[in-house]
């Protein structure tokens, strides 16, 4: 049976691993190559590398750094940040990425999803969606109860943001997820901007809304703080994988601890 994946995420800014709260207040978390090697040794199931300022500053991803990381690890490696066209994708794959994660440009030019998945295969095209709660029961604030606890919470609406969370895209996150799956994306990397870095848990409602809409794997991101959070999003919200940064970077939990916790509770993981 397919195992649920635990994926550390390296948010990269100016060549360093950083981590913020709700996309702001960035804190240094080390040298990317060294951090990547540690996660490979700790048997992370995958590694995600996001050049978090690439899109905003209109820079290309730091190709050299991607090469350095790829040279040092033997696990699947996804790279995102600043991807504009097919040539950028080919460049990253040649530099050692296994998959690419497209965010801003997927919104600006959805045809890139179709083109790239046809050219490189769906399995290699991840569409990252940064979503923020817009309306819950008529009010614009975070409603923490889950759908099952509170039926009226179904009226929640999340909007897609681009440019590293700086610009609202005027797209409904659930509709956009359906669209990217239809266009040929192989996976969705779903980040809750409301929960990112808060350690309050993943956004169960958002994740569940997306996993029940699309038939491609969804990687949940944003909010991991306690072991229970991983369990909840993998079971209640049916995510295929969990992405986390702070809890791993600052050694609150090891990957092994998370997997053992899940395994003891009947979630299939690779130990």
């Amino acid at each position: 049976m397919l195992a649920k994946r635990i994926i550390p995420c390296l948010d990269i800014k100016e060549g360093r691993v950083v981590k913020g709260i709700k996309f702001l207040g960035l804190r240094d978390a080390g040298d990317p190559v060294e951090v990547a090697k540690i996660y490979d040794r700790h048997q992370a199931d995958e590694l995600v590398f996001l050049d978090i300022t690439a899109s905003f500053e209109e820079r290309k991803t730091l190709m050299g750094l991607v090469e350095d990381i790829a040279k040092n690890i033997f696990m699947p490696f996804t790279v995102g940040g600043g991807i504009r066209d097919i040539d950028d994708i080919r460049g990253l794959l040649n530099a050692g990425a296994d998959k690419v994660s497209i965010n801003t440009q997927a919104v600006k030019s959805p045809d890139l999803i179709a083109q790239s998945s046809r050219r490189f295969g769906s399995q290699c095209i991840v569409v990252a969606i940064d979503a923020k709660l817009h309306i819950a029961n008529g009010k614009s604030h975070i409603e923490k109860k889950t759908i099952s606890d509170k039926p009226e919470a179904i009226s929640k609406k999340w909007l897609v943001y681009i440019n590293g969370g700086r610009t609202p895209a005027e797209l409904d996150a659930i509709e956009w997820a359906g669209e990217v799956a239809k266009l040929g994306a192989g996976e969705i990397l779903l980040t809750s901007m409301d929960y990112d870095g808060t350690k309050d848990g993943y956004d169960i409602d958002l994740t569940k809304a997306i996993t029940s809409t699309v038939n491609i794997p969804v990687i949940a991101s944003g909010g991991a703080g306690r072991l229970q959070h991983f369990y909840d999003v993998l079971t209640t919200a049916d995510a295929s994988a969990c992405l986390a940064a702070s809890v791993f970077h600052f050694q609150e939990y090891s990957i092994r601890q998370v997997k053992e916790y899940l395994n003891e509770r009947g979630v299939r993981v690779r130990l």
């Binding site: 769906s122 399995q123 491609i216």
Partner: peptide, 15 residues
């Protein structure tokens, strides 16, 4: 097949 409730592509660690 995408009819048996499993996500396609098959991505991840399997036995």
């Amino acid at each position: 097949p995408d009819t048996n409730g499993l996500k396609v592509p098959h991505i991840g660690w399997n036995q």
